[in-house]
Amino acid sequence: MTAGPAAGTRPRNRKQLIVEAAGQVFSERGYHAASMEEIAAGVGISAAALYRHFPNKYALFAECANVMADRLVGALGEAPPDAPLPDVLAAITRVTVAHRASGGLYRWEARYLDRADRRQLRTKFEHVVARLTEMVRREYPMPDERLRAVAALGAIGSITMHHTSIAQRRVEDLLLASAMGVAATDPAATAGSANSVELPAQPVPRTRRAEILAAAVPLFARDGFANVTNAQIAQAVGLAPSAIYRHYPGKLDILVAACLQAAGLLAQAVDRSLHRAADPRGAVIALTAAYVAYSFEHNALNSVAEAEIRGLPADLQRPLILAQREHIAVWEQQLRGARPDLDARQARLLVHAGFGVVVEAGRALRWQDTPGHRDAVTALVIGALTL
Rank of each mutant, 00 (worst) to 15 (best):
P5I: 13
R12D: 14
N13D: 15
Q16Y: 05
E28H: 12
Y31K: 03
S35I: 01
F54I: 08
L60S: 08
A91R: 15
A91M: 08
R94F: 00
R94I: 00
L105P: 05
R107G: 00
R107L: 15
D117M: 10
E134N: 00
V136G: 03
L153P: 00
L153M: 14
I156N: 03
I159R: 14
T160P: 02
T160C: 15
H163K: 12
S165A: 15
Q168R: 15
D173P: 01
A177Y: 11
S178G: 04
A183D: 06
A184D: 10
T185H: 07
T185G: 06
P187F: 11
A189M: 11
S196E: 15
E198R: 15
P205A: 12
E211S: 14
A215V: 04
A216H: 02
V217R: 00
F220H: 04
L239T: 09
A243Y: 13
H247W: 11
A262P: 04
A263V: 01
A263K: 11
L265R: 12
V270P: 03
D271G: 13
P280W: 07
I285M: 14
Y294L: 09
E297D: 14
E297V: 13
H298E: 10
A300N: 09
N302I: 01
V304S: 09
R310V: 14
A314I: 12
D315W: 10
Q317A: 10
P319W: 03
G337E: 03
R339D: 13
R339K: 11
R345W: 07
Q346G: 15
A347Y: 00
H352D: 08
V358C: 07
V381P: 04
V381M: 09
